[in-house]
Design a protein around this nucleic acid. Structure first.
Lengths: 144, 144
DNA sequence: GCTTGTTAGTTACAAATGCAACAGTTAGCG
DNA sequence: CGCTAACTGTTGCATTTGTAACTAACAAGC
């Protein structure tokens, strides 16, 4: 292949990064400005809000984020009293994490924002196209 | 909206990040292991390889990367003698950047890898779906 | 020509990240 | 039981990043 035939702006990893960056930005404003959170932190919050009690390891497996990032996010969320941890009695290495009522409040608030943001992003496409996009992204992310 | 109805794994910013991460990883191995480059560096390399002579500012506008990242990437690429810079005679603030023959060699090598990687990623979809995916991503990234 | 404001690019510092080493716990197996 | 290997989560350190301040060069208006 002749290199002039290669269009950088069609290159999927590049395109995905650009789109991800663009789409994350507007939403980032909400959790950053309103709650001073980092991306890692809202992701942990969202996992716990959506799936209930999880260990750090399980969050890592689901989100594919590195365990050190998760460990630090958990510490921060704990200091804000948005989650609490209990050592698993059956396996004292594991820590069972779950949101406090306060953490759930924040979660509910941000879910609402996320939902609205999602509608806006996907609103520019036909319903079937939007669904197809999500499916393809899931396959690319090896989530299904 | 009830928060239980919100599925994190359908949330576009999250999904895009996951897919971007997954798709970038395999390609990253090539420029990282073979050339010890960072993501920012191959992006600058790719822009110069694809579009010829550019200034840092133009690369920033095209890629939406922050100018400090670009400045540092340029310094690294320059030290490896993959690009050279010349002050624009008409505006001595601007620096005209272009790849050296050596830099072009690296670019051509990586373009080939990128192209193969792209085929593999999109091969799992029907041609028309792949095209639709790229179009939607471009719109989300506000590239068109 | 001078002042003021803007732009291109760099640098300093603080914050976030990745990697490797670590402690503590459990599991497997002789 | 006693030993080694594997696993969960944390920490230290080097690297990367983001923000803001900075220098140098140009542009516009007077």
């Amino acid at each position: 292949m002749h290199p002039d035939d290669f269009d950088l702006t069609d290159f999927l990893p590049y395109l995905l990064n650009q789109a991800a960056e663009e789409c994350s930005l507007a939403f980032q404003k909400h959790y950053k400005d309103r709650y001073g959170m980092l991306r890692t932190e809202w992701r942990v919050l969202f996992h716990l809000g959506r799936f209930g009690t999880l260990t750090a390891q399980e969050i890592s497996a689901r989100s594919k984020m590195h365990k050190t990032k998760i460990s630090r996010a958990i510490t921060k969320l704990e200091h804000r009293r948005w989650l609490k941890r209990d050592t698993d009695a059956k396996d004292r290495r594991r820590e069972l994490l779950q949101l406090t009522p306060l953490g759930q409040k924040v979660y509910h608030d941000l879910v609402q924002v996320a939902h609205d943001h999602q509608l806006e992003l996907l609103g520019q496409f036909k319903m079937t196209d939007a669904k197809a996009l999500q499916d393809m992204l899931k396959r690319l992310a090896r989530l299904q």
